[in-house]
């Protein structure tokens, strides 16, 4: 009797659990834009890591000077491409940029890269859409796109209720 009831409960429970997404108007936790941004971020982090490691290898004497220079240029070029693609993705209004470009790379080189990318973006933002569609950061007063959840300059949380739900 005990076994029979366990078996029945198991069957019904597992059946319901598996078919739940099919029976209800289930919305997946994914979206295409998000994943593109996320892929870019992974790539960016990978590149920053590679640049750092390259410099480290060079200092440890595992690379000739020409190879170092050549590989560094390659990596930096790709990093710059990824950074601008990321920026592009952030500017696309369809999906909100939940993560600012600050990835805390340690070396000065990368900092410079990021700084350059930020400046370029800031310049584009200035001539961007009208200021009415922006939200001001409560902690640093920077202007952010309406969709932003975090400040793009200082990373502070932008209060959700101030911009109202879509």
């Amino acid at each position: 009797m005990f076994s029979a009831s366990v078996i029945i409960v198991l069957t019904i429970g597992v059946g319901l659990f598996i078919t739940y997404p099919l029976l209800t108007r289930f919305r997946s936790a994914k979206s295409g834009e998000d994943s593109r941004t996320s892929d870019l971020m992974v790539r960016r982090d990978q590149l920053f890591h590679d640049i750092r490691e390259l410099e480290f290898d060079y200092r440890m004497g595992k690379l000739s000077e020409e190879d170092y220079a050549e590989l560094l240029t390659q990596l930096k070029t790709e990093a710059a491409e990824v950074l601008s693609a990321l920026e592009e993705a952030e500017r696309t209004p369809s999906e909100k940029p939940h993560e600012p470009l600050r990835a805390a790379p340690r070396d000065a080189d990368i900092e410079v890269l990021v700084a350059a990318a930020r400046q370029a973006r800031a310049a584009r933002l200035r001539q961007g859409p009208e200021p009415a569609k922006r939200i001001t950061c409560p902690s640093c007063n920077a202007a952010n796109p309406l969709e932003a959840q975090f400040c793009m300059k200082c990373g502070a949380l932008l209060a959700a209720e101030t911009k109202g739900n879509p």
Binding site: R25, R27, K30, S38
Partner: peptide
């Protein structure tokens, strides 16, 4: 650090999508 960061970001995205789900259902 990179992976922890990536995971945090993914989890964040997941929870935000979770939050959107009831709205979406209501809209539909």
């Amino acid at each position: 650090k990179r992976e922890r960061e990536h995971r945090r970001r993914t989890a964040l995205r997941g929870s935000r999508a979770e939050r959107r789900r009831p709205e979406a259902a209501a809209r539909a």
